[in-house]
Design a protein around this nucleic acid. Structure first.
Ligand SMILES: NC(=O)c1ccc[n+]([C@@H]2O[C@H](COP(=O)([O-])OP(=O)(O)OC[C@H]3O[C@@H](n4cnc5c(N)ncnc54)[C@H](O)[C@@H]3O)[C@@H](O)[C@H]2O)c1
Ligand SMILES: NC(=O)c1ccc[n+]([C@@H]2O[C@H](COP(=O)([O-])OP(=O)(O)OC[C@H]3O[C@@H](n4cnc5c(N)ncnc54)[C@H](O)[C@@H]3O)[C@@H](O)[C@H]2O)c1
Lengths: 233, 233
DNA sequence: TAGTAATTGTTAATTTAATAACAGTGCAAA
DNA sequence: TTTGCACTGTTATTAAATTAACAATTACTA
């Protein structure tokens, strides 16, 4: 089995972490650091050093004893694994608050991953550009996607429209969808789908905050209880 | 062990899914549906019906055979588990593109989770409101957070500032942080931290699109190979 | 009324992910 | 030189999450 095949079987979580490692490594590179230890990466990512070393083992990268990992080499290797050589083009459907914010955010962040087009139905937006990215009429979606060979679509339309937009993206030949609306969509086999709802994340944080609050109260009550019991002796 | 204690030990993934189930159930309720089967929920969430039933078992909810789960009851039970009775207040630090988009998005979505304040350093933004939420000067952060009993902070400042803001939030007594900048932050024990970088998600989608592309090529090559081999017979 | 199909609830098995354990190595200081 | 320390790399173990298996129940149908 060659290297490329090995990469195919990397755990999903490892893929996510590789992207995060690279993000951190790029910052370190900017700070003129040339080597980094597993425990340094781990600290940044809030994980264990073993986890880092294990991930790097899985991608077949070896560091130098007592010097750690060569940042530049590691960045390049991660790029070999997760980036596509020819680059991948992305479209954003729904040039509202979130869509425009995303364009600004992504612009120029990664060479191999570029936003090539935006789509909307609002005549005021069609024909304009946001950060250099043209906004096309949704009606021309299939054409633009096929002509420009766009492979990923990000959905940021009102949630009532997400189902229809996902369908249209699939029909246009898109291979991956990232849906930021709170309404889950459906895609056929062969199209990779990722959905993310910020409210879920916020509710998760809220849940653990609530738990921590209750725990603190419990401990206080227990302490008081013990105190009372002790004073009875 | 009482019910509340059971909930504390729910798997993290189950907590996430409960939030997602509720989101889906609320939509169903709007459509005047009163019962729902595990496989219906599963379809929406792209998971298996068993997973749904297992989660519901963990929270101790029973459906009716052949009728499924009572949507209203289930929504209420999920609220009991993940919502905090008194409600939790949230602050957004950094009223830029993303911060403002988030305020618009969250507003009025969940009663028990309300954005109470925004913070910024830009004098043009301080004193204004976004969707009814006042934007305060960052200098008054501790005071505002303590006075209003805000427990969660969402960080949407430029990434160069995220470390400083996280520190300040913690000092102000915040209990949970949701960091949307690509620069990971550090928090002490007792503060719950969640970080999310949209680029990681996009890169993950790109990776699996790339894999699918290569697989398709491989299959084609293999087919051709077989074809050639066959024609040799 | 007996049989069948559809559904829940629960335990068991499997898979995936994370952690622990530890051998190996090179450098530095004694 | 030798000893110990601070790392890496890998295998073994444990834990978490998912999936499978299946009994139990109900409603419908023949
Ligand atoms: N704003 C946020 O921070 C945020 C966060 C998470 C999720 N979301 C979700 O993202 C989506 C967009 O949010 P937003 O705040 O940008 O809303 P928005 O109203 O500002 O933007 C929606 C855009 O989609 C366009 N649109 C409407 N129907 C369309 C169609 N059929 N095809 C193409 N374009 C269409 C509109 O013209 C508008 O430009 C919503 O589903 C929202 O729930 C937003
Ligand atoms: N725009 C997006 O879609 C997007 C997506 C993911 C992540 N992000 C991240 O979110 C952050 C904000 O992105 P944005 O597009 O909203 O940027 P932005 O420049 O529009 O907004 C940043 C805001 O933070 C304020 N600010 C600067 N320093 C501050 C400080 N010390 N305290 C308080 N406020 C301060 C600025 O005045 C500005 O209002 C960035 O870190 C970006 O990487 C943005």
């Amino acid at each position: 089995m060659n290297a490329r095949d090995t990469f195919k079987q990397l755990p999903h979580k490892t893929i996510e972490r590789l992207s995060q490692y690279r993000r951190a490594l790029l910052i370190c590179l900017d700070n003129n650091k040339d080597h980094i230890f597993s425990h340094e990466i781990a600290k940044i990512q809030h994980i264990t050093p073993v986890q880092v070393r294990r991930d790097l083992m899985l991608i077949g990268y070896s560091g130098t004893l007592r010097k750690g990992y060569n940042i530049k080499e590691l960045i390049d290797l991660i790029a070999d694994i997760i980036d596509s050589e020819e680059g991948i083009k992305v479209a954003i459907v729904g040039m509202g608050n979130l869509g425009r914010a995303l364009i600004n955010y992504f612009s120029g962040k990664r060479h191999k991953l570029s936003i090539a087009a935006g789509f909307d139905v609002n005549p005021d937006k069609i024909g304009k550009t946001v950060n250099g990215i043209p906004c096309y009429d949704c009606k021309t979606m299939s054409q633009v996607i096929q002509e420009q060979n766009i492979e990923i679509g990000i959905i940021t339309v009102p949630d009532t429209q997400s189902t229809a937009i996902a369908k249209k993206l699939v029909e246009s030949g898109i291979k991956g969808i990232l849906n930021y609306t709170p309404k889950p969509v459906e895609v056929p086999d062969g199209v990779y789908l990722e959905e993310y709802d910020m409210i879920t994340t916020l509710e998760k944080v809220a849940f653990y905050v609530k738990m921590e609050n209750e725990r603190t109260v419990d401990v206080a009550v227990k302490r008081q209880g013990q105190g009372t019991a002790a004073s009875n002796f």
